[in-house]
Design a binder for these strands. Sequence first.
DNA 1: CACGTTATGAGACAAGTGTCCAACAAGAGG
DNA 2: CCTCTTGTTGGACACTTGTCTCATAACGTG
Lengths: 201, 201
Amino acid sequence: MTARPASKRQQPEERRKELLDATMACLARLGPRGTTGREICRQAGVSHGLLRHYFDNADNLLLETYRTMGDEFLARFEQELATHRADPWGTMDRFFAVLFSEEWASSDMLGAWAAFWTLIPNRDDIAEVGESYNRRLRELLDRALSTLPPDPGGIERGDAAAILSAVMDGLWLDYCLSPTRLTRERALELYRITLRRIAPR
Amino acid sequence: MTARPASKRQQPEERRKELLDATMACLARLGPRGTTGREICRQAGVSHGLLRHYFDNADNLLLETYRTMGDEFLARFEQELATHRADPWGTMDRFFAVLFSEEWASSDMLGAWAAFWTLIPNRDDIAEVGESYNRRLRELLDRALSTLPPDPGGIERGDAAAILSAVMDGLWLDYCLSPTRLTRERALELYRITLRRIAPR
DNA sequence: CACGTTATGAGACAAGTGTCCAACAAGAGG
DNA sequence: CCTCTTGTTGGACACTTGTCTCATAACGTG
């Protein structure tokens, strides 16, 4: 039987990215149970043999997908923090606007993130990536809070960052789980109420 | 080949509960991917043929496990709310003490909950259970907040309940993901700071 | 004790999975 | 035009999974 190529030959990095994207889509649509090496390749439109040509094994692919997702999200935040330096409150607002945008807050995203959470207890390499992501996010948040004008009636900045981080996670989770129960506008409103009350001093 | 029983015959309800517990343990230890019907039975010490005798299929078992977990957690909260009626602030504290107890906040619990979250986007029956759980938890929280003496400088009770619910989820998630980064004492401290600042008026 | 009910075990089966591998095709460089 | 590297395919293999079926043991009831 001839091995005719169904899909054109591509640059290594392109194909790698395609597989990472397919993994992401797979996790979102089918959950961790449906995310098999073969299904990922099916989704990417390549034969299942190709996976091992780019990744040592299927587990390694998952790890890199996680790392990529985290990096992309942090980069988006970083960019928001870099621009509009003169408007610190606006920066915080834009943080949350991004977080609750269609791109970042969807049942698909929830599916993918939750999938990684389930892997953390069982896989040290994945736990490490998650640890690094959380640390960097916390730093970013702390940096953003430090640009706000101090509020005499406020609280310790470290406390504010930790609480705000928790509210971020919680509201995001709630919104993704049921956008009808908690609408985007309400989520943003709740965030603003919280920030105003726990502003750093 | 004779079919000698490795495990004694049991009352139907007992065996059912054993299978539900095994499912829970499986989700926690092995994640959704490792939680197969056969593995559950292996864990419970029964043959794999028995699963279909108690549950229509493997998916149904997952659903019932989710429902059981949610019910048990809400019952625990309800009980805390029923006792010590004279001490509303203490009730709130005990809410969070339970939430961050070893029984409820562990990487095992996180594994199990996250597993269900991954299933929600793909399965309507599981989504329904989650929806019901969230609604009842919110009601419970709102009821607990209503027993607090009104704070003139506070916020709408509905807002307070929503924010506190988000903080609950967020802190719990953070703590389960990394108990060393966010210790139990610090999580409880952060909760208290938050509640004091967003008390209902 | 006999008998019917049912909880339990164990095998058969098709389908799906991860890994490995040999062949082929598509370019790059001489 | 030939050759060498490498992206790509598709099949082979052993293994696991879910479902079904049947034999068998345990128990309740008469």
